[in-house]
Amino acid sequence: MGKKDISEKSLEELNDVFADIVNVLLFDGKKVILPDDLVESNPHSNYTSNGKIREQERDVSKYWNNSRIRLAAIGIENETEEEDDMPLRVISYDGAAYRAQFSPKNNNRRYPVVSLVLYYGYKNRWKKSKTLHKSLDIPEELKKFVPDYKMNLFEIAYLKDEQVKLFKSDFKLVADYFVQMRKTGKYVPPTDRIIHVQEMLSLMSALTNDNRFVDIYDEVKGKERVNMCTVLDEIEEKGIEKGMEKGIEKGREEGRIEILYSLVHDGVIDAKEAAKRAGKSVKAFNAGLKKTYG
């Protein structure tokens, strides 16, 4: 994804969301990790390249304290595109976390490190390397001497419906969005309340590369109950306002329909929902959509 903005990490950094993600993906929804058991971890580590010390940063990292494992470091990496070197990147993060345990300040504690790679691509499955062996060009004679390393990859858009239902935090809405887009290419918003509105909109904006999610935050932040229906209504309304500000001389109703066409074309909403909002039959709406976008 290239350089990541801080806002992209803000939702997953929240302890309730972080614990929810790990509990569902690693423990089938069992409440193994509690939000209060999580402690902030420094996501930064260093490595040497061309004689210079450089810094690397994983997306989100936490320490987990419990009675069985005194201290465990769990990190999350977000990806919207496949990356050949992802196993190398993950092993470098994990290696740095293990190297840090050599410090006398660590009081001889030794703890496991677990990294989760969350892949949000919905048009194609992850086909790039998932293991260290697949990332390297290893002569056959040496392969048995090179330890393999498999990253924990989770393709969010390909989660089963039963898995999505296990999420209890706002991440359920994120997963549901990408699963729907993978299945139909369209999105029908649920009515579940968004708890962390700003963080949720920031993550959706970063993952979809659609600034409209963050542009409408001021319009929804004061509302008593915000859900994805509210968000899409505000996106639609803001689009109309922007169109009018640019001097598009169309009636309000015509402008609204144009925005609905745009939302369906971009995959933000499905044609059935858009037709309902436009007061048209699905057949008539799709005819106008085809005329507009071909």
Rank of each mutant, 00 (worst) to 15 (best):
D84C: 05
A175I: 03
D36Q: 15
L207H: 02
G279W: 07
D218A: 14
N209C: 07
G95I: 05
V214A: 06
E79I: 03
I21C: 03
G121L: 08
V60C: 14
E224H: 08
K168Y: 01
G222W: 07
N65I: 15
P190T: 10
D176C: 01
N46H: 10
E237R: 15
R99L: 14
K272R: 13
S41A: 15
K3H: 09
Y98S: 06
R125L: 12
R54V: 08
F18T: 05
Q101S: 12
N227A: 07
K31I: 08
Y93L: 01
D266L: 12
N209Y: 11
R99D: 15
D176V: 03
F167H: 00
R99K: 14
K134H: 09
P35K: 07
G222K: 08
K223C: 04
Q198N: 10
I248W: 11
G251R: 11
E13D: 10
H44P: 01
L88H: 00
N50Q: 14
V32I: 15
K283S: 14
T230L: 07
S67W: 11
P147I: 04
L201C: 02
L263K: 04
V146K: 01
T208G: 01
D170V: 06
S262C: 06
D192K: 06
K250C: 09
E77F: 08
N106C: 13
H133N: 08
P112Y: 07
D85Q: 11
G255R: 14
R256G: 10
K130N: 10
Y149E: 03
N42A: 06
